[in-house]
């Protein structure tokens, strides 16, 4: 496996969906290639960092308006008999 081929399989490897035979080759290459090893490690960390990112908070005024609008719409859709 060449560095270029490893790059192509990066998604599958990092996501754990790579074919076991290819996985073995992938890891063999990494064991002998520091740059690829570091790139894979960087990629994993990049994903983790984004995955753990804090969500945006709804602006308070918007949130109350949203819930009021939804409640109104809900009552139109489900009129009390």
């Amino acid at each position: 496996m060449k560095c270029e081929e490893l790059l192509r399989m990066l998604n599958e490897y990092v996501d754990g969906t790579v074919d076991p035979a290819i996985c073995e080759e992938f890891e063999k290459h990494m064991a002998g290639c520091d740059p690829c090893q570091v790139v894979v490690d960087n990629i994993r960390k990049t994903i983790t960092l984004y995955k753990n990112g804090q969500p945006y908070e709804l602006p308070v005024a918007f949130r109350s308006k949203l819930h009021a609008t939804l409640r109104e719409k809900w009552k139109e859709k489900h009129p009390i008999k």
Binding site: C3, L7, P35, N42, T46, Y50
Partner: peptide
């Protein structure tokens, strides 16, 4: 697209978060 996005973000973040002392030249 995912691959490109991941590679590009890795590049950007490593510019800031990477330790130059450990930099490897391919």
């Amino acid at each position: 697209r995912l691959l490109r996005a991941r590679l590009q973000l890795r590049e950007q973040l490593t510019q800031t978060l990477g330790d130059p002392a450990t930099q490897l030249i391919r």
